[in-house]
Design a binder for these strands. Structure first.
Lengths: 337, 337
DNA sequence: TTGAAAGCGCTAACAC
DNA sequence: GTGTTAGCGCTTTCAA
């Protein structure tokens, strides 16, 4: 079943069928009607592969994330897909689990499938891999980390806004020893959060000594270990801010194991504001970084690059704000400490 | 950059290049070496669209799920992708959020992209939609719900195994009023769990009256509402089993709000054993239905259908077992009740 | 406004 | 064992 069958059935040429399907306005309405009728009767669906082959545009965007299993990403995937469907794009999702081989394969797959652009939300992607994409002028969009290159856009997350709000909130509750459970060191988006934390603390003339900044690897297990480490300090923190919600959940879990009540004994603040944050016990105060908005920005960044005839010399920058969402996991500092 | 460039560069015909790339064994090693060298030097990647066009095989499987945002699915997506990569397949993911329009569009997209098979893990998919796929002889695999049709396989989940274990576990802890928070009524995989629950209760000569079986919609919010409803009963349950972990989390959350301690005041058992189950507070006892295994079975079901020259008259059935995973959310029944 | 025909990048049948 | 060539289903000139 192909365009020729439709042509035969509608008694027109295949060119007319093609034009009709593609809504070229110059087609005689009478013929167009016959074509649509044939399409309907035969249940014809155009073959995207063939279209791609001739047009050179696959209408596929790659989406590389580090781990679908991390609750932060599904929200993005969902939103990204929703917009993609709307614009008649397909999405090639790949969850690299930070495995170098998987990334390599991901890039290869994307190129072989002729993606029109790639959104990269994973880390540890080697430059040589990116070169393969850049070499083919595939538009790219990064979170946080893009160097200024043509066809490479960047979403800058304004961490300091939400983090400052969080620190101010804790300070107002008389917390002074505030710990920070960071993400994997070296990961730009994690380092940026630490930096924002330090500067927000400095603004309130609070100290942020190194021993109060521990790595939580952005995982539940990491959060577990981080709080274990923090509570062994001679002067443990009365509040802990986490670089993401998942590690905050780990921290809460460990607090439970240690018999620390939240927020009475320990205040906890997460980052990302994943759906689940609202439903953990107690509901987690978190810094929202809208996943929907992030997906929207990424998609439109790629779309803009695709539609732009001449590439911008320096890519484009987009900004995404963050904001504190107050729930029940924060309370006044324990005066006894 | 195409196969011709490689041919020119390696001083062979395009046929030889094609054979080399496709590892046809009869190629002269000397020529093959020249080809690979050219491929390397020019950074050539074969164009999948063109390959698909001629071979008729896209090496794409569709994966239709109801909601990536539901923590049950990411594990499946991850596992499915992992196997797909291994077999050089691509996956077209779509999260329908149970929206009829989205499903329709999903099916259309799949057909247009010439998928070689579709795994359907959503519900409310109308038969007319499926007909479009069946009409094109696209192999299909369902969870639980497939009628016996050629090219339509089915993964049967053995709910009763795990559910019986759970009921026996609760019975051993002297629970007699055990509630069941079900999924959306009409959803086959949810109804099957209710049925399994009823029969397991009957086996232990325990009653399972209708007022102790309430719908939790498989959502956190549903779980919240379900427990609210159950605690208003004149004789509230001492234990509640949930049709999935997400609603169990909702139940736990509501218990927290109501001041009910788990497991002292109320025992809770989930279903699915999502990653998170281990990390909620307290760790959730759950019935495991391996997501990895489910993905593996689905993938291989499709693969088998693709590779089978003559379709089986009745599709194939696969079985997936379930088992109770004991954690901390279950304890002895409160004797006072 | 419509149709004939070339060609997108590749595989596979066939001839050498 | 290798090369030539005819399509795969579609879009898009170009002529009519």
């Amino acid at each position: 079943m192909d365009i020729r069958d439709i042509a035969k059935h509608a008694k027109v040429s295949i060119a007319t069928v093609s034009r009709t399907i593609n809504r070229v306005p110059t087609v005689d309405p009478v013929l167009a009607k016959r074509v649509w009728q044939a399409v309907d009767e035969l249940g014809y669906y155009p073959n995207t592969q063939a279209r791609t082959l001739v047009s050179g545009k696959s209408r596929i965007f790659g989406l590389i994330i580090s781990d679908v299993t991390n609750p932060f990403f599904p929200g993005i995937v969902q939103a990204f897909e929703e917009i993609a469907v709307q614009y008649d794009y397909e999405i090639l999702l790949t969850s690299t689990v930070c495995d170098q081989q998987r990334m390599e394969k991901a890039v290869r797959r994307m190129i072989e499938r002729q993606v029109d652009g790639v959104a990269i939300m994973t880390f540890g992607m080697e430059d040589t891999l990116l070169e393969h994409l850049r070499f083919r002028n595939v538009p790219l969009v990064f979170i946080d980390v893009a160097p200024p290159l043509p066809q490479v856009s960047n979403i800058r997350i304004q961490y300091q806004i939400g983090i400052r709000q969080a620190v101010q909130h804790l300070a107002a509750l008389h917390h002074r020893r505030i710990a920070f459970v960071s993400g994997p060191p070296g990961l730009k988006s994690a380092d940026a959060r630490v930096a924002a934390f330090r500067s927000a603390m400095a603004e309130k003339t609070l100290e942020a000594p190194d021993h109060l900044i521990v790595s939580g690897q952005h995982t539940i297990e990491g959060g577990l270990a981080a709080l274990a480490q923090l509570t062994e300090l001679p002067e443990p923190p009365t509040a802990v801010m986490c670089s993401n919600d998942v590690s905050a959940i780990g921290v809460m879990r460990k607090a439970y194991e240690l018999g620390l009540r939240i927020p009475d004994d320990l205040s906890v603040i997460g980052f990302d504001d994943i759906h689940l944050a609202e439903f953990v016990i107690p509901p987690l105060t978190s810094i929202r970084m809208s996943q929907t908005e992030l997906a929207r920005l990424s998609f439109h960044a790629l779309l803009a690059d695709v539609e732009r005839a001449v590439p911008q010399p320096n890519g484009t920058e987009y900004f995404l704000t963050t904001e504190l969402i107050l729930r029940k996991s924060t309370g006044p500092a324990r005066s006894t400490l």
